[in-house]
């Protein structure tokens, strides 16, 4: 029994092996291997169009990979999607929601689909709405369509947390979130990892990733350029310096855009 527990403990929270996606000629994700240990706060950084969202979409079962596998706590996302999705909480970036529902309606609908008890859904919804400061909008009957970008992020996060998952996959969770809410979010995520949960988040704000994550991976042009503990990857420099060093800097010549504000 103990042995089994030890074994499941050693299983990575999220494991991508040889994950690949081709869109026609274009290779969006190029044989990515990543392993996120349980309890880790894992940051995925990369420039715009690096393939972060595509990789995460394949990891959570939203996009079928051309090749490779994704496992959540040892469960194959593509051969046992229901088992994997029970353990997962996901916040995708830039996708629509049922736009004409209020936040609480959305969470209630979501909880029922997740097969949760009515009383549990109700109390957790109330709590999440209050903690994420969406309760006032709910009082006015504001529907998701009328939410600001930051509010959309927060209600998306609430859907990811509602069923108390063991692994959270968050695509740009801090984008457009105000500083006060960002601190709340950080406290939630830290408490989650302290209790043994695992977080994988993508971002292109280096300072944020340095401050929060204990492990990072740098992705560019669909490939993993570096990954490991924060200190390993930084190798003495700042994450931003390391990032720019790996991805390559685009210089601005003296002649370029010289007409601007001249």
């Amino acid at each position: 029994m103990l042995e089994v527990m030890e074994q499941t403990d050693r299983v990575p929270a999220l494991e991508l092996s040889g994950l690949r996606k081709e869109f026609g000629e274009k290779v969006a994700v190029d044989d990515v291997d990543l392993s996120v240990p349980q309890g880790a706060f894992y940051g995925l950084v990369g420039p715009n169009g690096a393939g972060k969202t595509t990789a995460l979409s394949m990891a959570v079962g939203l996009l079928r990979p051309t090749a490779g596998r994704a496992h959540v706590l040892g469960i194959d996302v593509w051969s046992d999607p229901i088992g994997a999705k029970t353990a997962l909480g996901v916040l995708p970036d830039g996708l629509a929601l049922p736009e004409r529902l209020t936040g609480a309606e959305l969470l209630t609908y979501w909880g029922r689909l997740r097969g949760m008890e009515t009383a549990v859904i109700r109390s957790r919804t109330q709590e999440l709405m209050r903690v994420l400061e969406l309760d006032e909008a709910e009082e006015h009957g504001t529907v998701v369509l009328e939410y600001s970008t930051g509010m959309r992020k927060k209600i998306g996060l609430a859907t990811a947390l509602l069923h108390s998952p063991r692994v959270l996959v968050l695509d740009e969770p801090y984008e457009a979130v105000d500083p006060v809410s960002a601190r709340v979010l950080t406290k939630i995520l830290r408490r989650f990892t302290a209790a043994g949960g695992s977080v994988v988040m993508s971002s292109h704000v280096m300072a944020l990733v340095e401050q929060l994550c204990d492990r990072v991976a740098i992705i560019a042009r669909g490939q993993v350029l570096a990954d490991g503990t924060l200190d390993d990857v930084r190798a003495g420099a700042s994450l931003e310096e390391r990032f720019v060093g790996l991805v390559g800097e685009r210089g601005l010549g003296d002649e370029e855009l010289s007409w601007l504000a001249s």
């Binding site: 079962g61 999705k85 029970t86 049922p98 689909l113």
Partner: peptide
Amino acid sequence: QDGTALWMTIVGRREDTVRA
């Protein structure tokens, strides 16, 4: 009409989700 909101059905999928 629902657009990309279908992600919720996929991510929250259980045995009876599609039927429901």
